[in-house]
Design a protein around this nucleic acid. Structure first.
Lengths: 154, 154
DNA sequence: TAAAATCTCGACCAATTTAGTCAAGTATTG
DNA sequence: CAATACTTGACTAAATTGGTCGAGATTTTA
């Protein structure tokens, strides 16, 4: 399981919005600069996140984006699912079982599918347990460490 | 994590070789027919599996393939790793940590990477625990069930 | 020894996906 | 109304995926 660039950017953007979460809105340009994401590409991604109900936007001169839900209510699995497509591939499993007679290639596929289903369950298990809030906390923590050593750049 | 077609075919082929494992060799054509895999494509895949040390081949008129190792010694994680590329993406983790001063986009990436690393660990955990032999047993089992009901095709 | 069967090697190809870019438009503020 | 920002949809280049193909090398068997 590798995250696409798009997926990584999406999480980075949400992470910024999570860090500064409040009633205020943040401009696309700021996110792009801070996270070093191509601006035009980020527009696309934020738009997608908007239609997915993760962020809301305000137009016009003092426009920007903010989270639509609180960071602690957004799990990584939701984000990844929305941006990379379904984590769980449609169960060939029950399909095949019902037919009850499998050609030998179907038998093999059925078995392989079963294992891959376990894999998916494991993936979701991890991603389900992590919220945007958790990620923000971790960032704050390592930024705190950097403070201590007055050896950071931002 | 979705398996590529190539990956699924590879496992199917190994599964066939595992089912009939012995000193004898099986022709590419038989595997292709039985598993409904494009023959030319399968050639490529088996070649790849050969260079990966999973199978060995015999040329000539009664040539074919057989497993190079015993089914119980081949884990799914090895197969997938070889055919789909590394499961574990090179650790940006330690890299970044050493630098000790992260730009804020690097901090975000670092954190995200950490979670993805957990995901990878979970994936490997599942795949590591399943051997080719296990898969063969499962196939035998559902084929046994089909026998019981004399309602199968092969 | 020649024919037939089978693996081997590398090039090639079309369709899809990924990672962006761009232009023109709409909305909001001052 | 001018400036600033989001919105929408089309467009593109490069990489990946899922194959195909031709020519060659090896081995068996008649």
């Amino acid at each position: 399981m590798k995250l696409s660039q798009r997926g990584e950017y999406a999480i980075q953007a949400l992470l910024v919005l999570g860090m500064y979460h409040g009633p205020e809105v943040i401009r696309i340009k700021e996110i792009a600069n801070q996270q070093n994401i191509p601006r035009r590409f980020l527009e696309q991604i934020l738009n997608d996140l908007k239609s997915g109900g993760f962020v809301e936007s305000r137009r016009g001169v003092s426009g920007g984006y903010r989270l639509e839900r609180r960071p602690e209510e957004i799990t990584l699995s939701e984000i990844v699912r929305h941006i990379e497509g379904p984590l769980e591939s449609s169960d060939l499993a029950k399909e095949s079982k019902k037919k009850l007679h499998l050609h030998s290639d179907e038998a093999a596929k059925y078995i392989i599918n079963g294992v891959m289903h376990e894999v998916q369950t494991a993936i979701v298990g991890v991603l389900e347990a992590v919220t945007l809030f958790d990620l923000c906390e971790k960032v704050r923590k390592i930024q705190g460490q950097m403070d201590d050593q007055s050896d950071y750049i931002i």
